[in-house]
C-alpha cells in the first residue's frame, strides 16, 4: 500500500510493528504488549489524521493510485454488466466506460470516467481525460436509457476533459455542451456520484444528476488546484492554498447545497476498504433509485432543470443605485 506524505507517521509505526512481529514468537511476553500498544497508537493516529484533513490532503486521497475506479465499482455493485462501445461517429473513447447492468436486479445504465493503474493502462485510459468521443458515447448511452426507461448512473473521476489538438478539432466544447443540454431534459432519473476527481467541464459533462453525491475524500471544482495556482499565482507552487480557497471538498459542496449528500469512506480512504466503499455507494444508489423511480418523467425533468437553474450566489439590489 502506498502512503501519502501526511500518512508518514502511520507508515513509520506500521513498519515498526511489522519488524517487531517478525522478531516475536507467539505469546512473547515482552513484545506482544508492545505490539498491541503500537497498534492502538496507529489506530489513534489514523483517527486523528483523518478527522482533520486539509483540503489539499483530500485532493491527494482522491488521486490515490490505489483508489477504486469506475470499473471497480461497476464490478462490485452491479450484476450482468454489458459494456457498450463507440460514439458511432469516430471511435471508442477509453477514458469513459459504460454500459447496461443490473443493481439488485434493477436495470440501470452505468458509466464513468476510467483511469488506469499502471503506466501502460494510464496512457490507454488517457489518465481519465476524455475526448469528444467519450462524451458522445455517454450521450448515446443516456439516450438509450431514456428509450428503454432505464435510470442512468454516472460516476465522475477525471482531472478534466483532454486538452489535445484532436479533441479540439473534433469539438470538445460542442460535445460537452450538447450533453449538458441533453441531460437537462432526459426523461429518466440520473444519479451522479463523484468517486475521485471532479474537474471542471470534463466532469459535469456527464454529471447533471437529479441527485449528486460525493464520496468523502473527493473533490469537485471548476479547475484543479495546480491550474488555479498557475493562473492566479503565476506558479505551480500554491496548489495547497488554491485547494483551500477553491473550497472543493464534499463538505464544502454540501455546505453550498451543490450536492445532495456525502458517502462515507472507510477510515484512511476508499482504497483501504474497497468493498466497504462500494457497499456504501451501492446503498446510496439504491436509496436514490427508490426515490427517483417514483417520479414521473415530467417531474424528473422539471426538478432537474429547477435544481440547476437555482444554482449560483449573487445579490439583488434595487435598480436605482
Amino acid at each position: 500500500m502506498q502512503y501519502l506524505d501526511f500518512e508518514q507517521p502511520i507508515a513509520d509505526l506500521e513498519k515498526k510493528i511489522k519488524e517487531l512481529s517478525e522478531l516475536s514468537v507467539a505469546d512473547d511476553e515482552v513484545l506482544s504488549p508492545e505490539i498491541k500498544r503500537l497498534e492502538k497508537r496507529v489506530d489513534e493516529l489514523r483517527e486523528s489524521i483523518f478527522t482533520n484533513l486539509t483540503r489539499w490532503q483530500r485532493v491527494q486521497l482522491a488521486r490515490h493510485p490505489e483508489r477504486p475506479y469506475t470499473l471497480d465499482y461497476i464490478y462490485k455493485i452491479t450484476e450482468n454488466f454489458v459494456e457498450i462501445h463507440g460514439d458511432r461517429y469516430h471511435s471508442d473513447d477509453k477514458a469513459i466506460v459504460g454500459g447496461f447492468a443490473t443493481i439488485d436486479g434493477q436495470s440501470v445504465v452505468i458509466m464513468g470516467h476510467q483511469k488506469g493503474r499502471d503506466t501502460e493502462s494510464r496512457q490507454y485510459r488517457r489518465f481519465g481525460m476524455a475526448n469528444p468521443e467519450g462524451y458522445r458515447k455517454a450521450h448515446r448511452l443516456m439516450k438509450l436509457g431514456e428509450k428503454f426507461d432505464i435510470p442512468v448512473i454516472t460516476l465522475l473521476d477525471t482531472p478534466g476533459a483532454y486538452p489535445g489538438l484532436e479533441a479540439e478539432e473534433r469539438g470538445q466544447a460542442e460535445a460537452i455542451a450538447k450533453n449538458l443540454k441533453m441531460m437537462a431534459t432526459l426523461k429518466v432519473p440520473i444519479i451522479t456520484v463523484v468517486i475521485g476527481e471532479g474537474a471542471s467541464g470534463g466532469a459535469i459533462g456527464i454529471g447533471m444528476g437529479n441527485e449528486v453525491y460525493m464520496m468523502e475524500n473527493t473533490w469537485y471544482s471548476v479547475i484543479s488546484p495546480e491550474s488555479c495556482s498557475s493562473i492566479l499565482w503565476k506558479t505551480w507552487d500554491y496548489k495547497e492554498q488554491a485547494a483551500a480557497v477553491l473550497k472543493l471538498t464534499a463538505e464544502d459542496l454540501e455546505g453550498m447545497d451543490i450536492i445532495d449528500g456525502i458517502i462515507k469512506e472507510p477510515l484512511g480512504g476508499a482504497h483501504r476498504g474497497p468493498d466497504q466503499a462500494a457497499k456504501a455507494v451501492k446503498e446510496q444508489i439504491l436509496e436514490s433509485l427508490k426515490r427517483l423511480k417514483k417520479k414521473s418523467s415530467e417531474k424528473l425533468v422539471e426538478s432537474r432543470i429547477d435544481k440547476y437553474a437555482n444554482m449560483g450566489e449573487f445579490k439583488k439590489v434595487s435598480n436605482n443605485k
Binding site: M208, I223, L232, D252
Partner: peptide
C-alpha cells in the same frame, strides 16, 4: 471561461445556462 473565484458555483453555470436553453429549444 468560467470564473475561478467562484469555483464550483461557476462550473454549475454551465449546467444552468444549458438547462435554460433546453427549455428554449422546446
Amino acid at each position: 471561461g468560467a470564473r475561478m473565484m467562484e469555483s464550483v458555483l461557476s462550473l454549475m453555470q454551465m449546467a444552468k445556462t444549458s438547462a435554460k436553453l433546453a427549455q428554449l429549444e422546446e
